[in-house]
Design a protein around this nucleic acid. Sequence first.
DNA 1: CTTAAAAAATGAACTCATTCAATCTTTTTT
DNA 2: AAAAAAGATTGAATGAGTTCATTTTTTAAG
Lengths: 208, 208
Amino acid sequence: MTGLRAKQKADRNRRILEAAASLFREVGYDSARIEDIAERAEVSVGTFYNYYENKGDILVATVSMEVEEVLESGKAIVENPPPTTLEALQVLIDQYFDHSLVYLSKEMWRTAMATSIQQPESPFSRRYTELDGRLCDQVSMLVQKLQLRGAVMPGIDAVAVGQMVFNNLNMMFLEFVKDEAMTLETLKERVARQNRPLAVLISSPKIQ
Amino acid sequence: MTGLRAKQKADRNRRILEAAASLFREVGYDSARIEDIAERAEVSVGTFYNYYENKGDILVATVSMEVEEVLESGKAIVENPPPTTLEALQVLIDQYFDHSLVYLSKEMWRTAMATSIQQPESPFSRRYTELDGRLCDQVSMLVQKLQLRGAVMPGIDAVAVGQMVFNNLNMMFLEFVKDEAMTLETLKERVARQNRPLAVLISSPKIQ
DNA sequence: CTTAAAAAATGAACTCATTCAATCTTTTTT
DNA sequence: AAAAAAGATTGAATGAGTTCATTTTTTAAG
């Protein structure tokens, strides 16, 4: 078994993904036609559909790569967070937000989110959802870390708090990408305001 | 000015909306073609597009009717909520969830949400966003009411807390509609667990 | 080495959402 | 009441995403 078939498959998959990602960046999601993506990847339109269920799918795949990077960069913060609860949460969240528009436009985010909602059973949507779950876990882990350090009161359900913080920032991010006029700064400020009450309440009195 | 034109317009609008809503319920969103909706409403395809910008738009319009009802039924709870914070939040939220699948299937919710994300500038997406905002306000108002009553500690930012609770339940609802297997009961339990830490922390000690 | 079976690629054909120039209807003006 | 203007309707044409029967390539068996 030489694996020639597997090698060709992986190569085609990479070419299609790269072709799509570059075209999306150049002309935007809507203007990039499957025919164009297929041509740049040097495959036929039919082959494109052998690798991705539909157009939205390949965008979700692109976004997934981006989220992987964000997860990686968040790891460092969770391992060695700032002392106070509010600060620690904010540093992690700002990191997420700052990363979000490096490779992707708001339009691309909108389409990716919409696709992953509309076709939750497609493989790449599952992957996107799974990555979302890992981001959520990362926030929960930060809260747990702070609890171990004594910055967060014992007895608090760190996982529940982490999920709530994550769900909140996720919705705020959604509002952000829906509004072309909103700046990253505005987003950060709003999330900071919303986190403050919870962060203060769960913090140990002596640290506060 | 007889208003004949205005009357015909309102009538056509109603016919299109009813035709679409019934077709969506019968065959699902994707299988309902614009041509079929137009035929049932006894207008041409072109006329459909004079009333709605695109297919997603009319689904969002259907959802809007549903959310208006939910808002209305929530009003009573906000005006006279149960005594404890946790209970009050849960009763309002459960009310929202119980209402959610009366007229709409999970598939319809997914498509509506996806549309409102993907085309945030279209009139009906704006409407959806506005309704979301009103739901969020309703939760905030509940927290404020509880604060006035003394159930929630003074000094807490009721609006920020309300927004966080709403964003959390909204994300949980999104997860719910993405997962055909998840039941309403599971959804309610999960949200209840997530709300507990916050609800306990913001409650006045004597009430708790 | 030949042959059979399995896997993958292909692109013309198909489906539907969307558009728009022509037509018809209602309202306003003279 | 007739003519002009404004407002709406219409459905054939358009175009992009998606499908699928056929062909080609790769692997396994004899």
